[in-house]
Amino acid sequence: MIELYILLIFMIIGAIVAIEVKDLLSSVVAVGAVGLGLSIAFLILKAPDVAITQLVVEILCLIILIRATLKKDLPFSTSGRWFFNSLITAGFLTIFLFMAAEALQQLPKFGQPIMRVASTYLQQGLSETGAANLVSSVILDFRAYDTLGEATVLFTAVIGVLTLVRRIGRKKIGEKVKAEDE
């Protein structure tokens, strides 16, 4: 499992670069590097479905974010109580990590999960649904309510974007642009 540690350290370095760099476009590209590293980590952890989806979604996310940041100026204000805020944030995160390290002792060890629900899916998945890909049979047959709720959330997000983008009450441009907006 040494390659997994190397990938995680690479992702942490990428995240630090994405947070601390001054240029917005460089920051977005560094987030893309973190996402591609995450895709390889999913592939090592034996989750090929999630790896394919993460790879494709990462590219689309990168396109959208670059589209949002292109040719925009980037004013930074570092005024205010800089030292005080940093101190409080660092203290909070230190306490959070200590608590998490205590709480993680209660989890099952890495590599030995408790598969109480999943053993049923593994044994009866083929006879009950007929699909060879067990992840697909879980998301579309055993737990299809989850997918239905996901479809609702996606629909709401699309409607939200279209509502935000639509222009209200401006009649200068003419009919054609307005018809495209709807």
Binding site: D49, A132, N133, L140
Partner: peptide, 9 residues
């Protein structure tokens, strides 16, 4: 349903 992939990807 027989190989990695699916509706989302």
């Amino acid at each position: 349903h027989i190989s990695p992939g699916g509706g989302f990807a």
